[in-house]
Amino acid sequence: MAVQIARGILRGNVQLLPEPITTWTDASVDLRLRKDSHIITIASLGKKRMYSESYIKFGFTSINKQGKDLPQCVICQKVLSEGSMKPSLLKRHLSSCHLELSDKDQSYFERKAPVLKSIRFDHTDQLHKQNEASLRASYMVALRVAQNKNPHTIVETFVLPCCKDIIGCFFGENAAQKLNTLPSSNDTVHRRTYDLLEDI
């Protein structure tokens, strides 16, 4: 239909309105025609792919972002574009990014999906940066404590108060209060140390 209208405009069979018209905004084909200083955008509606429950076998569930259903990997939490809602592209992500999981059956990914849904997301649909930064910092501190052969209690009693003082002096008390989210108890540092030992 869009092509027929475009041909009609080029031949002069379709009369232009006094003001520019834009139609079919969410389309796959976008034709811009100029005639007598008027621009008409004509587009053919593309086929919109919807999420199918069978995509879980490739390790993908859907997430609604700005009114659009987008595929999201249950392993790495990566959100792909709307154009990636094709079985071949989802399978390619699984085989290229998670090769060791490509032979897993559908039930494995079905067990991972509810965990993904329970993770809190911020307005950009990414993991909360604050929690991610706290977790990373906690592991980094545990590594330093283990390397220097210090007791685990040093983080809670000495390192964290020193860090708060330093950050408070440089960046203000509001920035120093963010360190309260850092897991620093004796048991936490002990667990982090053993996690690091298992990863070696």
Rank of each mutant, 00 (worst) to 15 (best):
N131R: 06
S84A: 14
N150G: 02
S62P: 01
R191A: 09
E53C: 03
V115C: 06
L90W: 01
A142D: 02
M50E: 11
I56P: 02
L99R: 13
S37M: 03
G67S: 07
D105K: 09
L17W: 02
Y51P: 07
I21Q: 11
P71K: 04
L17E: 11
F60W: 01
I21E: 07
M85N: 05
T124S: 15
I63T: 12
A113S: 12
I39E: 07
A142M: 02
I5N: 10
P183C: 05
S95P: 00
I154H: 01
L17M: 09
D36E: 12
I42W: 03
L70G: 04
Q66C: 06
S37C: 04
N13W: 03
K57T: 09
G12R: 06
N150W: 08
A137W: 00
L196V: 07
P87H: 03
R192A: 10
Q66F: 09
L90Y: 01
R49N: 14
L160G: 07
V159L: 13
L45P: 02
H98K: 10
P114L: 06
L80S: 13
E198Y: 04
I167H: 04
F158G: 07
Q106P: 00
Q130G: 11
L90G: 05
I5R: 11
S118M: 05
L127F: 03
E132N: 08
P87G: 12
L196H: 04
E156K: 11
P71S: 06
A113W: 00
N174P: 00
H190P: 00
I200T: 10
I75R: 06
Y194A: 14
S138R: 02
C76Q: 07
R111Q: 15
K78Q: 11
K91E: 14
K48Y: 04
T193V: 14
L196G: 15
K149E: 12
P18L: 03
L17Q: 12
L33Y: 01
E100G: 05
K117C: 03
H152V: 11
S84Y: 05
N186G: 05
T193S: 12
F171A: 15
R32P: 00
A2F: 02
P20T: 11
D103S: 15
I75S: 05
K65P: 01
D26C: 05
E198P: 00
G46D: 07
V159D: 01
T61G: 13
G12A: 07
G172T: 05
I56W: 02
A175K: 12
S37P: 00
F60E: 03
K78E: 12
L160D: 04
L89D: 09
S81K: 09
S81F: 02
D122W: 02
L70M: 13
T23E: 13
A137F: 06
L94G: 04
S95F: 03
L116Y: 01
K129L: 13
D122H: 09
L179T: 02
G59Y: 01
V115E: 14
E82A: 14
H123C: 10
N180S: 15
Q77T: 09
Y55L: 08
R32I: 11
K57C: 07
